[in-house]
């Protein structure tokens, strides 16, 4: 079952003196349970594509279907709720809420989904345990290393039980050990819970772990390779 279906996506930024064509006719379908890396050099359109797939930005042309829903022209107010229920996000800079504890950061997304306190507590602790940082539950993000913070961010992304998780350069700020740990963690989630991950990266270590590698160049897919 496909969780993402993008057809003929283009994105042109017209704010600059010379229009920039960031994406030129992207066709991409991601199936449930995939562990996909979108790779390519800087400026090839990886982040733009992820933003469009995640409903954070609208394509100039083409259609995007996420979990069976066409989000191409969906209003921003509806998209916010759609993202809450459907998509998990992991950002390069972690973007945790500094005034909350790590557990509260994970819980927060479930609170927005109006889940009960008992369910929030249980799932937040489960996820932090799976990420190996349950002992840091009551600490603030600033008390953790970058790798640990990114694991909290992954736990937060999983907390909402999304159809898939979009991760924009998740290892860009991490050292090699943290990167390896984080990738192992995400690979395990993918295998054990069939969680769908789509990364943008140019980190070879992430590329090595990916089951599918989509390569972009100048806003076009130049290769799409699936590994066993």
């Amino acid at each position: 079952m496909s969780v993402i279906k993008a057809e003929n996506i283009t994105k042109t930024y017209k704010e600059t003196a010379v229009p920039v064509h960031a994406l030129n006719g992207i066709n991409l379908e991601v199936q449930e349970g995939e562990f996909t890396a979108i790779v390519g050099p800087s400026g090839c359109g990886k982040t733009t594509l992820l933003n469009i797939l995640g409903g954070l930005d609208h394509p100039s042309t083409g259609t995007v279907e996420v979990a069976g829903t066409n989000i191409t022209d969906m209003k921003d107010s509806k998209l916010i709720d759609f993202r809450l229920q459907t998509i998990g996000f992991v950002f390069q800079a972690y973007n945790l809420i500094p005034v909350l504890t790590n557990k509260e950061n994970v819980e927060f997304i479930m609170l927005l989904q109006k889940r009960s306190k008992a369910e929030r507590d249980k799932r937040a602790m489960e996820l932090l345990e799976q990420m190996g940082i349950a002992d840091k539950a009551n600490q603030r993000p600033s008390e953790l290393s970058g790798g640990q913070q990114q694991r909290v961010a992954v736990a937060r992304a999983l907390a909402s039980k999304p159809k898939f998780i979009l991760a924009d350069e998740p290892t860009a700020n991490l050292d090699s050990v943290s990167t390896a740990n984080l990738l192992d963690m995400m690979a395990r989630m993918n295998q054990e819970q069939n969680a769908t991950f789509v990364f943008s990266t140019h980190d070879q270590r992430v590329i090595d772990k990916a089951k599918r590698i989509v390569t972009l160049e100048d806003g076009k897919i130049v290769s799409d390779e699936t590994r066993n």
């Binding site: 107010s77 916010i80 709720d81 993202r83 809450l84 996000f89 973007n95 809420i97 997304i109 927005l112």
Partner: peptide, 16 residues
């Protein structure tokens, strides 16, 4: 700005 952007990205609506 960034934190608020993140909150809206992950699903916190404008009213909240």
């Amino acid at each position: 700005f960034r934190e608020l952007g993140m909150l809206m990205a992950v699903g916190m609506n404008k009213l909240r």
